[in-house]
Design a binder for these strands. Structure first.
Length: 688
DNA sequence: CCAGATGCTTTTTTT
DNA sequence: AAGCATCTGG
């Protein structure tokens, strides 16, 4: 994939797609057919044909994908030709537009909030509205999900409640329940929305909504952006949801829309995406054309045979049968294990064997799992066997508790109305709890003047602590222009408190993160950019941060390592050898999905994405005692222990498609290793 | 009113 | 294993 002369390697289909000269296009491309290569080729081609790189915007779902595409375009064009080419996620792009045109979008000095913050706010609201909230048997997190799903699908609350809380049922009883719950939920969501407004918060959905609403209703906004843009290149089109479509649609009038996608790889329905949107592209976009890529260059035919079989079993017609250019491969392996420790030790040994005897790198291996949680045993095993690895997905660096403590100070400086940040900062200190913090907060918000904070805090807090905090904040004001210095000062002031609060693992793990935070902060020009963009840049997670700290945050310099990833985070990845963990009953499809046909098909596509990551070797593990297999499903089927025969994707797998193996050696869980949590990973890794 | 301890429930996927 | 509600001692 990282072939430097890749522009010379386009096949006829790809070349046709790259040199498309109509108004709008959708490139429907199967897994491994060169989707990324095509979008890269398209950007290069446009620039070579004289389009200004600054007038091309590439949109992807992850920062990682955006960076990769932009870097590869730059590397195949003469030096500095494509410097101003832009690639970002939908969210980060909207955030940049809002920052650039604050008046147009009506958002000045706002703070972008992450899911943790959303939950915290929702909890406050539910606390304020105890009478209403207690009538519902819904948790605050579920209310957040409901709110977000409704907005992402641009549908009304009743429909969303029916879909999410009543599994789409439409009977009298359900109708009645919804008519009772809807007004209560609406009142809480309204209060939540209002609180966001008062605190000048924008959540992830707000970013898209703010921009798309203006584009839709305001011709001035359209003209402004039309002057900036000629070509919009959209990756992973099948994962766009109605809200994102609302954002894209106005651009069909003001510039060229070029989308690539694969209906068989649509795995974001839980976020409102509908793979059918690629089927109706030509109807929705006048003056458009659909192009197809069918030749797979990634995997052996044996791997594709299994993938094709899985897809053919679906009631949905994807009209896709991937054909490989590599025919002499090995059969995929299905390894049967009876617990997670067997599974983990087998995978670890296999990787070590490849490394020692087969001359392969750790980086030739990709381990995929449905959930982040499930990989913990494997991570423990890797630490024990000294296999270097990185995880994709999982807790992000800026979402770790100790980082958030320090960042809360910067957030206060950035937006003095930021209630969550204030509460976090105040309760950080010994002797200040939630109750006192919210009382002080009321006075702070009312004062509006950071100069008087000292006395306010002093009056409200015991001892002289309040005055100290006030003086500290006042002092920070003077360094507001220097983000790196802000981090240093804040850390210095809070270090003792941090060391105490996290005394269990301070020295070993957390302390070092602040060096990384400083480097990260310095890479953003202004405080506002760091607060907003830093959060939206998900490319750095907890585990990678330690590796990156030595190399000034340049992922390209990372040493050889295995990649452990959720399947969702693995789209676009590929590796010589690919392990797909826990392909077990009640996992594929998930027991959560069993009574929902659409969800089952989404799970099928998820497995399909996993299978098609492998180039040469594919190993599926099947764990007969996976957590889900034992604990889930009973409540769905009542007392029945039997699952429907078609409830497991591999249940009627033709013998000739795979090689079945069973774990031979007894393996007991070693007593001396513990399953690490997500942040317990850096020790034992040897990247030197 | 705060902080720490105890016992209970619950685990997908992501910007 | 982590988050939650609840309890207890300061």
């Amino acid at each position: 994939m990282s072939n430097p002369s890749e522009s010379q390697h386009l096949n006829l289909e790809q070349e046709r797609a790259v040199k498309f000269d109509g108004k709008h296009a959708l490139v429907l491309a199967g897994a491994g057919t060169g989707k990324t290569r095509t979008i890269i080729g398209r950007a290069s081609y446009l620039i070579e044909s004289g389009v200004l790189p600054s007038k091309i915007q590439i949109l992807t779902f992850t920062k990682k994908a955006a960076n990769e595409i932009v870097e590869r375009v730059k590397s195949q064009l003469p030096e500095s030709t494509a410097l101003s080419l832009k690639g970002s996620t939908f969210h980060s792009w909207c955030n940049q537009l809002i920052m650039r045109y604050p008046n147009l979008f009506g958002a000045v000095a706002y703070t972008v909030i992450d899911p943790d913050d959303q939950l915290a706010i929702m909890k406050m609201v539910c606390g304020d509205m105890q009478t209403e909230f207690s009538k519902l048997r819904i948790k605050p997190q579920k209310l957040i999900d409901l709110y977000s799903f409704a907005r992402n699908t641009t549908s009304n609350l009743s429909d969303t409640i029916r879909k999410m809380l009543f599994k789409g049922r439409a009977d009298n009883e359900t109708d009645y329940e919804i008519s009772v719950q809807r007004p209560i939920i609406a009142a809480i969501l309204k209060a939540y929305q209002q609180k966001k407004g008062v605190n000048k918060y924008l959540d992830y959905d707000d970013l898209l909504l703010a921009v798309s609403t203006q584009l839709k209703n305001n011709s001035e906004a359209r003209e402004l952006l039309a002057a900036d843009l000629e070509h919009l290149l959209v990756d992973e089109m099948q994962d766009t949801n109605p809200l994102q479509w609302q954002l894209l649609e106005p651009f069909t009038e003001i510039c060229h829309l070029y989308c690539v996608g694969d209906d068989a790889q649509s795995i974001y329905a839980f976020r409102g995406a509908d793979f059918r949107n690629v089927h109706t592209f030509e109807e929705r976009v006048p003056n458009s054309k659909v192009l197809y890529l069918n030749q797979n260059y990634r995997s052996t035919q044996q791997i594709l045979d299994l993938s094709n079989w899985l897809l053919e079993k679906s009631p949905i017609a994807y009209n896709k049968k991937l054909q490989s250019s590599i025919t002499d491969g090995e059969l995929p392996i299905v390894l049967n294990v009876s617990d997670q420790w067997q599974e983990a030790s087998w995978i670890a040994d296999e990787i070590l064997r490849d490394f020692r005897e087969d001359d392969k790198l750790f980086g030739d291996h990709l381990v995929l799992s449905r959930s982040q949680y499930y990989t913990k045993t494997l991570q423990a095993m890797f630490v024990r066997k000294k296999i270097p690895y990185t995880t994709y997905g999982g807790r992000k660096f800026l979402e770790a508790a100790h980082i958030k403590d320090v960042v809360s100070v910067l957030r206060i400086l950035n937006n003095p109305y930021d209630e969550i940040a204030w509460i976090r900062f105040l309760t950080f200190w010994e002797g200040i709890g939630a109750v006192r913090a919210s009382r002080v907060l009321g006075k702070i918000i009312a004062s509006e003047n950071i100069e008087t904070l000292g006395p306010i805090l002093g009056n409200a807090l015991p001892g002289s602590d309040g005055e100290k905090l006030g003086a500290f904040l006042k002092d920070l004001e003077s360094s507001k222009g220097n983000v790196g210095k802000l981090v240093s000062k804040a850390f210095e002031f809070m270090e003792l408190g941090l060391a105490f609060k996290y005394r269990k693992d301070w020295q070993e793990k957390r302390k070092g993160d602040f060096q990384v935070l400083k480097i990260l902060a310095k890479s953003y020009g202004t405080l506002g950019e760091f607060i907003g963009e830093g959060l939206l840049d998900n490319s750095v997670n907890m585990n990678q941060a330690h590796v990156l700290s030595g190399s000034e945050l340049n992922p390209a310099e990372q040493k050889d390592h295995v990649i452990i990833s959720t399947i969702h985070s693995a789209k676009g990845l590929e590796a010589d050898t690919c392990f797909v963990m826990n392909v077990s009953p009640k996992v594929f499809p998930s027991s959560y999905s069993l009574d929902d046909k659409d969800a089952i098909e989404e799970d099928r596509r998820l497995l399909y994405v996993a299978l098609t990551r492998a180039k040469n070797r594919l190993i599926l593990t099947r764990n007969s005692s996976s957590i889900h297999a034992n604990t889930k499903g009973d409540d769905i089927f009542g007392d029945a222990k039997e699952l429907p025969t078609d409830s497991y994707f591999l249940s009627d797998l033709p013998e000739e498609l795979v090689e079945q193996r069973t774990f031979e050696h007894r393996f007991d869980k070693p007593k001396d290793i513990k399953t690490p949590n997500t942040m317990d990973l850096s020790s034992g890794m040897d990247f030197s």
